[in-house]
Design a binder for these strands. Structure first.
Length: 437
RNA sequence: CGGGGAGUGGCGCAGCCUGGUAGCGCAGCUGCUUUGGGAGCAGCGGGUCGCAGGUUCGAAUCCUGUCUCCCCGACCA
């Protein structure tokens, strides 16, 4: 992509309304624009990141054996009356009526809908287990939206639902998501720690929040130092096998958010206690027959008797993750994208756009890197060097390839690593092979 | 939902108290000079001062209402 033609309205100054760093940087880097309180438009650069994050989430859900589908954003109020949540949900639910005055709502979540779909089609224990997910926009009419995408009203969420015949099956499903989440966040360069979460009236130990550690996180977290050193599962995980040992490893050490924190643990942990801050990016929980019973989602067991299915629900805040990644990875100059979610891998900076030699070298790089499958954002603008460097640092592409007349005289170009700030002058051939890796 | 604050050009702000026909920096456009970390000079364009009423000869400024946005708290992926 040529920057001269790309729609990325970057800003030198920070809009007054943006308080936290991810909000500020997303506005300044031209990724998003606010349309209403808590509602944002994704501009091309931001959209690329959102799609990358979404893809990683999707891949890991698929690997875990979960099947993607897509449910509507607008739902019928009647469905929610079946579970009793239409009245219970309160003003956070955006209620709307259609032209026939039918009561509708913009979905804040999809338990009722997926349960309804499931019960129509699945009648036998032989249909189980089923793991289903979708990635869809949700709306929760927060009293007070804030922190940019971190607490918006409209947000993109991956929500998955599991259906099993009994508790043991439900635990296996739960473990699949537990492991998939560890992998998902690790792929985005994040340290995400599972923390025991309140499981409400259901009880039990099967409810975990996944918190990304970032200094600016909104909740205080307390955990054992050992958790930070744990290696997340790799691609060799066998989802068909027993995942309990992995889950046990990650849940055996103390970890809690401030709400669940037991101060007595601090003394017990001593020097192993880590106090940090975190951002919740995922939540998994088992809720048994909470919806299947009232909504009569039952299957016939081996003995012919109907039994309500055991369910669980598993969310990841996809749009929030984009902000969380920035909170966890930035510096004074701007964003520092992990390679896996970067909108482009390489920023090609032509320091002197009207110099024939520079232009030619850049065009060659641009074409060759493109052919090699490397995403390149080519700053071909007729602008000053300082502006180009500042914009590149702000947008945070992992690699900058700087081409200027000074180096070019000696056949050299400069490669800068955005994360470390390290620069090296290399030959053009070496630059190519370096950036293709 | 309780408490606080703000709406003036694309962005950041001043002007409001003490009414007199709107200003500064950045950004934009044109020209010249510059050119490896957000250039300099000269010129140009762009604002129904959130909206609606009211007071007044005259309202960005005073009064009333209303909408929107932000911050703190309670609530939440």
């Amino acid at each position: 992509m040529r920057l001269s033609a790309y729609f990325v309205p970057t800003m030198k100054e920070t809009p007054a309304e943006a308080q936290i760093v991810s909000h500020r940087l997303m506005l300044r880097a031209g990724m998003i624009r606010q349309m209403s309180a808590g509602i944002y438009a994704w501009l091309p650069l931001g959209h690329r990141v959102l799609r990358k994050v979404e893809s990683i989430v999707r891949e890991e859900q698929d690997r875990a054996g979960c099947q993607e589908m897509l449910m509507p954003t607008v739902q019928s109020a009647d469905l929610w009356r079946e579970s009793g949540r239409y009245d219970a949900y309160g003003p956070e639910m955006l209620r709307i009526s259609d032209r026939h005055e039918r009561e509708m709502l913009y979905g804040p979540t999809n338990e009722e809908m997926i349960t309804s779909i499931f019960r129509e089609e699945c009648r036998s224990y032989r249909d189980l287990p089923k793991l289903l997910y979708h990635i869809q926009w949700k709306f929760r009419d927060e009293v007070r939206p804030r922190f940019g995408l971190m607490r918006g009203r409209e947000f993109l969420m991956k929500d998955a639902y599991s259906f099993d015949m009994n508790f043991e099956g439900a635990r296996k499903s739960y473990n699949r998501f537990f492991v998939a989440y560890l992998k998902t966040f690790a792929r985005m360069g994040l340290k995400a720690i599972p923390m025991k979460a309140a499981s409400g009236p259901i009880g039990g130990d099967m409810s975990h929040e996944f918190l990304v550690l970032a200094d600016t996180g909104e909740s205080a977290v307390f955990c054992h130092r050992g958790l930070l050193a744990l290696e997340p599962p790799g691609d060799d995980v066998d989802y068909g096998g027993d995942l309990q040992p992995i889950v046990d490893t990650w849940t055996s050490l103390y970890a809690a958010t401030d709400e669940e924190h037991d101060p007595a643990q601090e003394a017990a942990l001593g020097g192993d206690l880590v106090k940090a801050r975190g951002i919740e990016v995922g939540h998994i929980f088992y809720f048994g027959t909470k919806y299947s019973k009232p909504m009569r989602a039952v299957v016939a067991g081996p003995d012919g008797q109907d039994i309500p299915v055991e369910m669980g629900s598993y969310g990841i805040g996809v749009s929030r993750l984009v902000a969380a990644i920035i909170e966890a990875s930035h510096d004074d100059a701007g964003i520092i994208w992990p390679e896996s979610v970067a909108p482009f891998r390489v920023g090609l900076v032509n320091l002197k756009a009207d110099d024939a030699g520079c232009a030619q070298a850049c065009e060659t790089f641009y074409a060759n890197l493109g052919r090699a499958g490397v995403d390149v954002l080519y700053d071909d603008r007729d602008a000053r060097a300082g502006i180009k460097f500042a914009d590149m640092d702000l947008m945070g592409l992992p690699w900058q390839l700087v081409v200027g007349p000074r180096g070019l005289k000696n056949g050299l170009v400069e490669i800068k690593n955005r994360a470390t700030g390290e620069r090296q002058e290399v030959t053009m051939e070496s630059a190519m092979s370096h950036l293709m890796g």
